[in-house]
Structure formats: structure tokens, C-alpha cells
């Protein structure tokens, strides 16, 4: 790392995420290669002399997408880390374009757990954390075991409600006075 923030101690995603990513990359590769069949047919039909063997284009696309994808997935798994702190959640990700995101627990509006069919078969859950005013998830952790995800959610939500007592949210009671600001 750059010496500024050491993420080597942060938690990894679940091991199975790699499997999930590899499978979905394979599916993507096959689908994209499937689309590449059409230009391949057109070109072979129109060209008088085709220098390569039949279905060379889809095969090339498949090798490219899957080869690159599988390589990146290995790196990506190493780079995708998260850390649940005392009052915050930090997520680091990215192989080429890196990012580190920090969310305070008292800013969390809601937490989503979701999982697709393959992820369910592998026992994985996708955790998305939402903050105020943003349409997309502020941070998301794409693969935790069901147990870890539940734990993470309960920890995040619990801390969140501790900061704002539920009775202060209801309309009938006025919210408590805000803390004093240093500059008056």
C-alpha cells in the first residue's frame, strides 16, 4: 500500500466469493461470446476468403473475457477488504482504480441483505449499506457468509439506534437539543 492506510489487517470477504465471481465471469464470457457468433457468421458469409477457422471470433472473445476476468478476480479478491470499527465501517476495494470508503454508524439509514441463486447455493450474502440522500448504496460488501452478514447488519443497526433513541424520532416529542458547536 501507499503507507497511508494499511489494509493488510482488514478482513477478507468469504472465500466462496472468488468461486462466485469466477462462475459469473464464465457465464458473462459465454453470453458475450454467444453474441459474437452473429458478426462471425456475417463476416464468413460475406468474405470470400476467411483466414481463420470457423467461429474464431467468439472463441477469441471468450478467451479474452474469461482470461482477463479470471486474472482480475484473483487480484480483486485480495484488494476487497472491510473493517468494522468502533463507530464506523470502512471498505477498501479496487485493483486499478482503488477506493477506500468510510461510513459512520450514525449516518446509516438502512442495510440491505441480498443474494442471487448462485450466491445462495454458495451460502453468500451481499450487504449494502445506505446513507441519507444517496440513491445507490454508500458501501457494499459483495460476499459474506449468512452468519457474518447477519452479525454485521445487527451490529451496524444496533449502533445506529443507540445514537438516536427511537422516541426522539417520533413526531410527538421534540428532538433533544443539539450539542453545542465550538463556534457558537
Amino acid at each position: 500500500m501507499n503507507g497511508a492506510t494499511d489494509i493488510s489487517g482488514w478482513k477478507h470477504l468469504h472465500e466462496n466469493v472468488r468461486k462466485l465471481w469466477r462462475i459469473s465471469n464464465l457465464i458473462t464470457g459465454v453470453v458475450v461470446a454467444g453474441f459474437a457468433v452473429i458478426p462471425d457468421l456475417i463476416i464468413r458469409k460475406s468474405a470470400e476468403k476467411w483466414p481463420f477457422f470457423p467461429f474464431a471470433i467468439p472463441l477469441f472473445v471468450l478467451v479474452l473475457v474469461v482470461g482477463l476476468g479470471q486474472w482480475i478476480i484473483g487480484r480483486s479478491f485480495e484488494c476487497y477488504r472491510y473493517e468494522l470499527g468502533e463507530d464506523d465501517l470502512a471498505v477498501a476495494k479496487g485493483v486499478f482504480w482503488k477506493s477506500w470508503r468510510f461510513v459512520n454508524r450514525n449516518r446509516i439509514q438502512h442495510v440491505d441483505l441480498s443474494s442471487g441463486p448462485i450466491a445462495r447455493a454458495l451460502g453468500l450474502v451481499h450487504v449494502s449499506v445506505f446513507v441519507g440522500g444517496m440513491q445507490a448504496a454508500a458501501v457494499s460488501i459483495p460476499g459474506l457468509s449468512t452468519h457474518d452478514a447477519e452479525m454485521l447488519r445487527s451490529k451496524l443497526i444496533k449502533a445506529s439506534t443507540e445514537v438516536i433513541p427511537p422516541d426522539s424520532i417520533s413526531a410527538s416529542t421534540p428532538p433533544p437539543a443539539p450539542p453545542e458547536f465550538p463556534n457558537g
Partner: peptide
Amino acid sequence: VQLVSVSQSP
């Protein structure tokens, strides 16, 4: 502030 993030391109 709701979210703080640091990012770095290649």
C-alpha cells in the same frame, strides 16, 4: 457529511 471516500486512479 454522510460518507467519506478516498480514491486513486492508476
